[in-house]
């Protein structure tokens, strides 16, 4: 399977992914290919398997069968091998999530005792970057996302939309190949939701990353390049997308 195409470069290639919990099949033979610079929405009713698929793609869980492959990072030496995420152990998957992926959750899930800039800088500090450099870089991201001047505010002192922008900054600071967002606008009003989606799309796509968004909201899905619909653990319209 080629990793480059005429328009885009494939960054994640999931083949025939199945996930079972006991006798329940959460995913049944799903194949998905996601390219750099692409925003993909995953939709479906509750229990359709969209969050399970996100977890498999992001290396949060290991699929029961099938493979998930990740291309080498942008600008890396061509000799770097493709990583088979689904074969990695827990520690290696944690490292992958830390270094190659970014995450945005519905509730933000930021550390309430840290300031905005400290929250945003956390992934860099965890990766071993010095605090000063990490916070400088995070402050640039906060400013780029419209939070200039709010760096030293605690999360409780920010509005829901502002807190979600901090979460987006945290997801972007280490320039991840893919940003996974699970209902990122689920807790926001429609205006704020629209603003947050703009920020999330621009910040990810403009730097060549890929965005995978799990959502119930058609308006959010409509802003992505592609929509994958899941039903009973299968992709609607065929096993490949």
């Amino acid at each position: 399977m080629p990793w480059t195409g005429p328009m885009h470069t494939v960054v994640i290639d999931a083949i025939n992914v199945t996930q079972s919990f006991g006798h329940t099949h959460a995913l049944s033979g799903v194949s998905v290919r996601i390219s750099r610079g692409e925003a993909v929405a995953m939709m479906g009713t509750s229990g359709s398997g969209k969050t399970t698929l996100l977890h498999c793609l992001a290396g949060i869980t290991q699929p029961t069968s099938g493979t998930v492959r990740l291309a080498p990072p942008i600008g890396a030496a061509a000799s770097l091998p493709v990583v088979t995420v689904s074969d990695l152990g827990d520690g290696e998957r944690s490292r992958l999530r830390r270094e190659r992926f970014g995450f945005v959750f519905q509730q933000g899930l930021l550390l309430p005792e840290l300031t905005a800039v400290e929250n945003a800088a956390l992934p860099l500090m965890v990766a071993g970057i010095s605090r000063t450099a990490a916070q400088q870089h995070a402050a640039h991201w906060l400013a780029a996302l419209g939070l200039g001047g709010l760096e030293d505010r605690r999360i409780g002192q920010l509005s829901g939309g502002q807190a979600q922008r901090v979460a987006i900054a945290r997801a972007q600071v280490n320039a991840p190949d893919v940003v996974f967002a699970d209902e990122p606008t689920g807790a926001l009003d429609s205006t704020t939701s629209d603003e947050v989606m703009t920020v999330l799309l621009d910040s990810t796509i403009d730097r060549g990353g890929a965005l995978v968004v799990v959502t119930h909201d058609e308006a959010v899905a409509a802003r992505c390049h592609r929509v994958l619909r899941l039903c009973d653990g299968r992709l609607v319209g065929g096993p490949h997308a």
């Binding site: 992001a58 944690s94 490292r95 995450f103 899930l109 550390l111 956390l122 992934p123 965890v126 945290r170």
Partner: peptide, 16 residues
């Protein structure tokens, strides 16, 4: 609990 789960998902080592 939610926060600890999210930090784990972000790849923050549990030891940290």
């Amino acid at each position: 609990a939610d926060l600890y789960r999210s930090l784990h998902l972000l790849g923050m080592p549990d030891l940290m």
